[in-house]
Amino acid sequence: MRIYFTFEPRLELREPLVEEFPQVDFVFESSLSTEELQKADVLVTYGEDLNEDILQYATKLKWIFVASAGVEKMPAQAIADREILVSNVRGIHKTPMAESMLAHILAIKRALPWMYEQQKKSEWSKKGKQTELRDSTALILGPGAIGSEVGRLLQAFGVATIGCNRSGKEAPYMDVMVSFDKLLEALPKADIVISVLPKTTETTHLWNEEHFKVMKNNAIFMNFGRGNLVDEKVLIQAIKADEIGYAVLDVFEQEPLAANSPLWTLPNVIVSPHISSHSSRYVERSLNIFKPSLIKWLNGDIDLENIMDLSRGY
């Protein structure tokens, strides 16, 4: 059994893995090489280094473990045609991402960006527009592991939570649930809108001009799912028209965000370069999901954690 990592975990994480599975031949590299891929039975990757041309070299490959939640950059049809099992690390992002979202919300509510600007100018002023988070309402698009965790934290601050998904089916830490077709009815109640939706055909440009127009004009719009949710021209127009109060964006239609994009310089916009999930514990948590699945795999059990349906994108 040969397992090929296209990234190198820290030594203190790598050594216990090798010791725990002496029957496995592990290969750790900092990038993907076709030579090693030809020998691999299992591939461990972040998912961005694999394409259809490269996949043809993976003649022995039976399982791909993706140390990421999204697979939109992977050759889904080619992998499905080869009947290669794919699993991922769904769930490990909830702590750093929920903390990132809460940090941005509190920063805006308590006028921290304004304070930082005052400090740069050495100006003593008490004119910052500070508001409270308590008694706000947050609408969370995609209340899965990440959305439910941010819902839990927001409820602890006295925030009412509305979850929104395709079916309207109940989700943890949501006071109310609505389906996508009821979204326009729920939006006027929201002080904060947070999207953690995956990239699928259904979510592409799900959000449009009408959604911005029914929002409170002081609401915070946050996209931490995928950039396909909204056409950036529509988003920019909504910001310029003062249809929302703030936009906090961790994902974009094209990444990296072009240097000439108006989003860099528009007031009341925070650009986060797709780093909300970053954490010093990221690989540690990934391996905590990989190891139990590897034990199953070695015992001939393919009922692994977080098996993905590539046709649906998650």
Rank of each mutant, 00 (worst) to 15 (best):
N228H: 11
L229E: 09
V230S: 03
V230G: 01
V230F: 01
D231W: 00
D231F: 02
E232I: 00
E232L: 05
K233S: 13
V234G: 10
L235T: 10
L235A: 09
I236S: 10
Q237D: 14
Q237G: 03
A238M: 11
I239W: 01
K240D: 06
K240T: 12
A241N: 15
D242I: 02
D242A: 08
D242E: 15
I244T: 12
I244Y: 13
I244C: 10
G245C: 11
G245T: 00
G245I: 00
G245V: 01
Y246G: 02
Y246F: 15
Y246T: 14
A247I: 05
V248R: 00
V248A: 14
L249R: 05
L249Y: 01
D250L: 11
D250T: 07
D250N: 12
V251T: 08
V251E: 04
F252D: 13
F252W: 09
E253S: 09
Q254D: 12
E255F: 05
E255V: 00
E255H: 06
E255R: 09
P256W: 01
P256H: 09
L257Y: 05
A258E: 15
A258Y: 11
A259K: 15
N260R: 06
N260I: 08
N260L: 10
S261Y: 09
S261V: 12
S261C: 11
S261E: 07
S261G: 08
S261T: 08
P262M: 02
P262F: 08
L263K: 09
L263E: 10
L263T: 06
W264T: 04
T265H: 14
T265V: 13
P267R: 13
N268A: 12
N268E: 13
N268L: 04
